[in-house]
Design a protein around this nucleic acid. Structure first.
Lengths: 148, 148
DNA sequence: CTCTCTGCAAAGCATTTGCACATTG
DNA sequence: CAATGTGCAAATGCTTTGCAGAGAG
């Protein structure tokens, strides 16, 4: 997986080349999780102003194929994060806060479901949606809760 | 919820009007599950040739807000289905077959996770991805598995 | 009759792609 | 040097929206 000293190792083990753009994208993914392609673009631009959004998408797609990156859809745009560990997500419907949750029991459940239906090569994604304490509090006061 | 004799009851209990377009959309949703907006459009057109895609989207959005319809994203386009019961999905990564799975234990797990993080009004969606037996078999023979 | 809905067509986002040039290994 | 990657900009696919006329209650 990704390691702070050897972020790039993953790529080096493939036919893909390690360009400065890709290294920057991997670094951006280390800093924050659940990032939008556009957010990643902004962050990468800090180091490499000329990088295009197209390159971000192409690279993220490669990283996902290799298994270095995990994607998860929320609110129109896809969210990307480094595939450090297997986890699921708890999302606030109001402010879109995203919390990682371990839920290790899901893996076994998914496997059992898959076997029942003769599916192989299984993966599972659980998304729990609700309202965080802060947003629930604001809602009680009748205030708008949209935003971060 | 939706009943074969009273599909429309849900709408009638709201401020929304029951138009022939909406009735047709509800009926299309009874027939098949996991439908794309475009598929629903085609089906509705059989009865009402002039219906526009825009109306399909507007209606589906209302039905979701009321709770008559459940959405679930897969492969670019959103999939819609009547909210008859709470269930989850098993999806074949090759042919995109979608199987409904009950997994009642998820609700309790989601609730417990939500409580841990002081979230309220919780809902959970589990998507299990894998390769169905047929696609796995075809893959073994080196044939293309896309489609179906 | 009033308020809501509809069709149409244009707009809006997120994402993908073709191409000529730049870069990596 | 050969193969792969990049920027740019146009194209795509799904979904949303403004508007004027049509229809529901």
């Amino acid at each position: 997986m990704i390691d702070s000293k050897g972020v790039d190792a993953g790529l080096l083990q493939t036919r893909y080349r390690l360009t400065k753009q890709r290294a920057a994208i991997l670094r951006a993914l280390e800093d924050g999780a659940h990032l939008t392609a556009e957010t990643i673009h902004e962050r990468v631009r800090a180091a490499l102003p000329a990088v295009s959004l197209g390159t971000i998408y192409r690279t993220l797609d490669i990283l996902r194929a290799i298994g270095l990156v995990q994607v998860f859809a929320h609110g129109g745009a896809a969210r990307y994060e480094a595939a450090l560990d297997k986890h699921h997500h708890l999302v606030c419907a109001s402010c879109s806060e995203i919390v990682n949750i371990p839920a290790p029991q899901i893996a076994a459940l998914a496997l059992s479901i898959a076997q029942d239906h003769r599916y192989s090569g299984v993966d599972a994604a659980l998304v729990v949606t609700g309202r965080c304490a802060r947003c629930a509090g604001l809602a009680r006061n009748g205030a708008s809760t949209t935003g971060g």
